[in-house]
Nucleic acid binder design. Structure first.
Length: 268
DNA sequence: TTCCAGGCGTATC
DNA sequence: GATACGCATGGA
């Protein structure tokens, strides 16, 4: 576990941090509630806690927060206690991954709230990133916060019409209901062996292998989870027809982050 | 206009 | 178990 190099400056926290880039981490399709504002800064939320963050080189300012919130919430959310330099050195044994890591060396895995991640990736299916962001922004605007599953379990596909989420609305409701009735429990799923956890998540209507994998990786920090979407499918066909290299073992999900960003921008 | 997007459920074989 | 198709919506 890495110690952090930071200091409190009035109402701000100033952090010196390597292997971290705001665009690469907050705008790479893993979290959908961060908005780029002027000067390369970002505004966003971890569940219902807001943050305004600015950067100059490797110096990051967490505005208008306190040390307790920074250490307990933001440092964990941005996975700052993990050494991504070490992770990149390990992944760089493989040629393609070495290229992907140096293409976007400031990617970090965001450790999101379990429910927020599950809900977000249900919405993500057969959808594009700008539109996913739009649906989630209408969701939080409507409720004034990210609604908990109890709140959404009281809705219907029709009453969620304002989301314009299409066929996904009924899936959100099924997830909310299964959690609200305690048919499923995300804390329990989080503690399960990954096979069992996948199986449980896929009991939700609208949650298949890809969404389950995303819920595990982004919401439960299961770094061995490996979501395969259309982009990663292309990566696998082109570079890894015989499967992932050995150096990814246990951190397949983090490798996937670098590869996803790499292939998407390569083809633009 | 048509195609596609961080897929999944269902029908059919 | 594999494969084909429909699904809501909106940007390119």
């Amino acid at each position: 576990m890495k110690s952090l190099d930071y200091e409190v400056k009035g109402k701000d926290i100033v952090l010196i941090q390597n292997d971290f880039d705001l665009d690469e981490t907050l705008d790479c399709g893993q979290a959908f509630r961060w908005e780029k504002v002027c000067g390369g800064a970002y505004k966003g939320y971890a569940l219902n806690t807001p943050l305004y963050i600015t950067a100059e080189g490797n110096e990051f300012t967490f505005h208008d927060t306190d040390e307790q919130t920074f250490l307990a919430l933001w440092a964990d959310y941005l996975d700052l206690y993990t050494d991504y330099g070490e992770i990149k050195r390990r992944l760089s044994c493989d040629k393609t991954l070495a290229a992907a890591c140096s293409y976007a060396p400031g990617i970090r895995l965001i450790k999101q709230d379990k429910w927020e991640a599950l809900c977000s990736f249900i919405i993500s299916q057969n959808n594009n990133i700008p539109r996913i962001k739009g649906i989630i922004s209408r969701l939080v605007e409507h409720y004034g916060c990210f609604p908990d599953f109890r709140t959404l379990s009281l809705e219907t596909a029709e009453s969620l019409g304002f989301l314009r989420a299409g066929f996904r609305a009924k899936y959100i409701i099924d997830a909310a209901k299964k959690l609200d009735t305690n048919t499923l429990d995300l804390d329990e799923i989080c503690a399960m062996p990954i096979g069992k956890a996948r199986e449980k998540l896929m009991q939700i209507n609208g949650v298949g292998p890809k969404v389950a994998e995303c819920a595990l990786l982004y919401g439960m920090y299961r770094t061995e989870a490996f979501p395969v979407d259309v982009w990663i499918k292309r990566v696998m066909e082109r570079y890894y027809p015989n499967g992932l290299p050995e150096c990814t073992k246990g951190i397949e999900g983090i490798a996937q982050q670098y590869l996803f960003h790499y292939i998407r921008n390569l083809e633009k």
